[in-house]
Design a protein around this nucleic acid. Structure first.
Lengths: 103, 103
DNA sequence: TCGACAGTTCTATATTTCTCGAATTATCGT
DNA sequence: ACGATAATTCGAGAAATATAGAACTGTCGA
């Protein structure tokens, strides 16, 4: 996870996704459902500023996915990206944990 | 910070330091003071399993120090290492922050 | 002040990681 | 089934990072 976030490009992707991927929303009939995140192409425009999708974005998304920091799922022709907030929470917990000796 | 923790050797150094660097202790007269952490040589023995101090350890310690994850201070011939728990806390906070849109 | 100990810095090499373009897979609309 | 769009995979070259050894700096004790 640290290595994944350690790359500047990936950190930008991460921050972008976090800024536009609300975890849940209220649907038409009052139900709570996951909000649709941006597609890979949209991430590309925002983060890399390019119209066409370069392979390097795919590479970075794969790294983030392997690190379980983001999620991706296919919806038709597009891949929808999201943040894995659960992994994030456990990483934050890891950082602040104090060991036994410090009790 | 993420890049610093992204290297396996540095993560081991970090975990070792966290396991043996209590943030504070109560002094003889009831005052709270920083506890003395291990020396660079001790870190080296534990993490690299080597008696003599290789230059690579110095290199990694510098990276961790630049990232403000650890602290070092000279005490006589030795350099004492410690964890910067404040930076750690703010990094953890960064990870769990949710952006405005998700309010 | 000299020698020994504790770490750091420097330089070169090795390794890993990133980037770019071309070919490939997957899905949709017709 | 075909063409177009969306994204991934592959391979080679470029760039960044890590490692190892030698020389250097700083501190203590005799």
């Amino acid at each position: 996870m640290f290595k994944a976030l350690g790359d500047p490009t990936r950190l930008r992707i991460f921050e972008f996704l976090r800024s536009c991927c609300c975890p849940v929303a209220v649907g038409d009939e009052g139900e709570v459902r996951p909000v649709q995140g941006p597609t890979v192409g949209e991430v590309c425009c925002s983060v890399l500023g390019t119209e066409k999708i370069p392979s390097s974005l795919s590479f970075h998304l794969k790294e983030l996915r392997n690190a379980r920091l983001i999620t991706m799922e296919r919806r038709g022709k597009h891949m929808i990206c999201g943040i894995d907030r659960q992994s994030l929470a456990s990483l934050a917990e890891y950082l602040t944990q104090t060991d036994d000796c410090c009790a």
